[in-house]
Design a binder for these strands. Structure first.
Lengths: 149, 149
DNA sequence: TTTAAAACTTGAATAATATTCAAATATCAT
DNA sequence: ATGATATTTGAATATTATTCAAGTTTTAAA
């Protein structure tokens, strides 16, 4: 056995997928060439950024999901995007938003378990510029990526 | 013109997409039938829930993104999933998690603008059982769905 | 260690789908 | 109104997914 499934999942997490033009055409009762044309236009226009698989993270060793509210140190207030972009390279992070309210940033992190998450906190969230973090751990994922689980 | 693009987007938000088996096979340098077999197995096993388009919400009239921290009233503590499941039917909500910490639930909501969001708050977040909400508005989406924007 | 069942891999053939093309139609800007 | 640009569409072609059957590996139990 080759155990390529981890690699498969990594690839399909953010690409290597495509729209099903014929199925959409049937659903909307339009010619498939019309659907094709419109989708290509939306890709060119940037409305559609890509295509990906929706995964059940409990089943792929990523069952530990945390939302982290992040407070930056005062000297970073002027450019929260700098730290946000630095964080974006970590594959464990699914979402990053700069926000209003009592914190400057929120991120969504996926790890195998609390031990792996602790490693992530030590390695990534200890960066200078990050003053304080509040971890909100997911007890039950009810809806993810518009899909009710 | 038919303006089917809204419908296209709604369909592709949570389905009507598929993996690109030949591309994956080339990338991993494996026969496409092997990739096909393994992906089908992961679909049957539930690791892969579906396939969807990743969208630039700023460009599709959904530029207003809010994370809402939700406190439930004490009599709902025993079953936070009941309200979570009720909320899951609203198409504006991308994610719902029951969480630990100072709140019982977090949701991610997409709307056109603050007016539309206000309608959502009035219509949806006024449900009995929800005691208090804290809205964290996204000022800048840096990473979404594992894709850096 | 042997053995049989189950799971996985793979190439060849086929079925299904995406893409290209060209012509017709509709929309837009002036 | 009018020319330019964008969209729709069917037919032809190119590409890709799927099925199938045979071989191989892994697993579990004696």
């Amino acid at each position: 056995m080759k155990n390529i499934r981890k690699e498969l999942i990594e690839l399909m997490k953010s690409g290597y997928c495509a729209p099903r033009i014929v199925e959409i055409a049937k659903k909307l009762k339009e010619p498939s060439t019309t659907i094709h044309y419109n989708i290509k236009q939306m890709e060119k226009g940037g409305e559609i950024v890509g295509y990906r698989a929706v995964l059940d993270h409990k089943k792929i060793e990523e069952g530990f999901c945390t939302y982290v509210l992040i407070s930056l140190s005062p000297d970073e207030y002027t450019d929260p995007e700098r730290i946000a972009k630095e964080l974006s390279k970590y594959p464990q992070i699914e979402d990053i938003d700069v926000i209003t309210g009592g914190w400057e940033m929120i991120i969504k992190v996926r790890s195998k378990d609390i031990d792996e998450y602790y490693q992530f906190v030590k390695n990534v969230l200890s960066k200078k510029g990050i003053a304080k973090t509040t971890s909100l751990n997911s007890l039950k994922e009810v809806k993810s990526n518009y899909v009710t689980l």
